[in-house]
């Protein structure tokens, strides 16, 4: 299990029905690219988060295939449409098989 991996997401607490909102996500992860070498000259193997998805009430907002060129502590900002109240779920998939998740509810007024 990659240690110390912690997600953070920023979602407004409420929106009007049909509004477009901005979502920011950050996750603390080294994103070892596979390009670096250790002290002995051996290549440090790649170990990154390779996919990120955001869904709302089960429907997809964005699905990102991530490569080693995404910086350490991957950050994404994107927009979502909010048809009704519900829950955003965020999922990050690690090369090592781990899956990290976070979720945020949003009310509609």
């Amino acid at each position: 299990m990659a240690s110390g991996v912690k997600p953070r997401v920023k979602v407004p607490k409420s929106a009007t029905a049909g509004e477009t909102i901005t979502i920011k996500t950050l996750i603390s992860h080294k994103m070892e690219s596979g390009q670096r070498k250790d002290g002995d000259g051996n290549v440090i193997p790649r170990s990154i988060i390779n996919r990120f998805t955001c869904d709302f009430n089960g429907e997809n907002v964005v699905d990102v295939t991530m490569e080693p060129a995404i910086s350490t502590n991957p950050y994404f900002q994107f927009e979502a449409t909010v048809p009704a109240a519900g829950e955003f779920t965020f999922t990050w998939y690690d090369d090592d098989g781990d899956v990290y998740t976070d979720s945020k509810s949003i009310a509609v007024n």
């Binding site: 953070r8 920011k24 950050l26 950050y75």
Partner: peptide, 12 residues
Amino acid sequence: DFDNPGMIWVEK
């Protein structure tokens, strides 16, 4: 504070 990656370790 959200864009600032340092804050994730402040939370820790």
